[in-house]
């Protein structure tokens, strides 16, 4: 059965789109990522114009992430305090990033540098997460029956807490984040949020992939809280993106978004339930595998000659 989309100006198979939503929503509820890295190219592949694909995806992520945030909030996995601070940083960083990219573009060949940096970064983050969670899983196996080991797995246990940590610890406005069980200066999450915001804006991605490792390894939050808090943040950033895209570019396809969210809101719930059954390190290693798979896919698409060398403007 087909449905015509008023803004995308194309017809789509209803079941295919709902199914896509379900799959990406599942990843969202499970790992706390928006899933734009997967959804936007898939939508473009089935004929949605790139600008509409990216904007509408943001609209459906609002639904998936609010569904996921509620599920995780019930499980006590959302650190609102941390989420808000990261958001403040993220919004500022996003605005800065948009200007930085203009400067980079003016310098020439920026697209190449951005794309390569993105692939390398994804590869490094995925590789590091994979090795770290694999080691933690092995360690917890050898210390079976000791639940603390699993939770410590969420905290990567840096070998040298030394000077850097002491320096960060000396920053003013220290507060304790009860949900995450960590203490940080207010400046740290704001600065990190800003960094992710800048990178996300430059690379034209939502930033879930960057934010999750930052929360996990730099803010030392437990994996389950990372997932819930990340979804909470994504809900706000995607609301902003949806509004701006609808207002300035008229690229949000409301009908496509409804079809997608029919799947993704349920997917996010299923993801949250599945996530509850998995340990932090198991979640991390799964996410690491997906990140690595995306890296390989991006590398392949960079190296292999595309079938068609022309495309409409816009999108990722």
């Amino acid at each position: 059965m087909h449905l015509y989309l008023p803004i995308a100006l194309t017809s789509v198979n209803i079941l295919l789109i709902v199914g896509l939503g379900l799959m990406v929503g599942l990843l969202s509820g499970l790992f706390g990522v928006g899933g734009g890295f997967l959804m936007t190219p898939l939508l473009i592949m089935i004929g949605i114009p790139p600008t509409v694909a990216a904007a509408t995806d943001a609209n459906q992520i609002v639904a998936a992430s609010s569904s996921g945030t509620i599920a995780h909030w019930r499980l006590g996995n959302v650190d609102f305090k941390m989420g808000l601070l990261l958001l403040i940083g993220g919004f500022t960083g996003g605005a800065l990033g948009v200007h930085i990219i203009k400067v980079l573009r003016a310098m020439g060949n920026a697209n190449f540098l951005i794309k390569i940096t993105y692939v390398i970064m994804l590869g490094l983050v995925g590789g590091f997460m994979f090795i770290e969670s694999l080691m933690a899983l092995k360690k917890s196996k050898s210390q079976q029956g000791n639940p603390v080991a699993v939770e410590v797995g969420a905290n990567p246990g840096h070998a040298n807490p030394g000077k850097k940590r002491a320096l960060i610890g000396a920053l003013p406005f220290q507060i304790y984040f009860e949900k995450s069980g960590v203490s940080h200066s207010v400046i740290v999450p704001i600065a990190l949020g800003m960094l992710v915001g800048i990178l996300a804006a430059i690379m034209g991605v939502g930033g879930g992939f960057l934010m999750v490792p930052v929360m996990l390894y730099l803010l030392r939050m437990p994996m389950h809280v990372v997932v819930g808090t990340s979804l909470f943040q994504i809900m706000f950033t995607c609301t902003e993106v949806t509004f701006l895209q609808a207002y300035a570019n008229h690229t949000v396809d409301f009908i496509l978004a409804i079809l997608l969210l029919l799947g993704s809101t349920f997917g996010a719930q299923i993801g949250a339930i599945l996530g509850r059954r998995l340990k932090g390190d198991q979640l991390k290693i799964l996410l690491a595998i997906i990140v690595l798979a995306v890296t390989v896919k991006m590398l392949l698409s960079l190296v292999m000659q595309p079938h068609i060398l022309l495309s409409y403007k816009g999108g990722h």
Binding site: P6, A63, S67, V252, A257, I258, F266
Partner: peptide, 29 residues
Amino acid sequence: LAFEKPALYGIISIVIAIIAGVGVGLVFG
């Protein structure tokens, strides 16, 4: 609506997404 009242259109899109997300969240909960 999308072209003539884009702000309203954007807000409706967001509100529907939030209602759908929260609704499904509550039903599942």
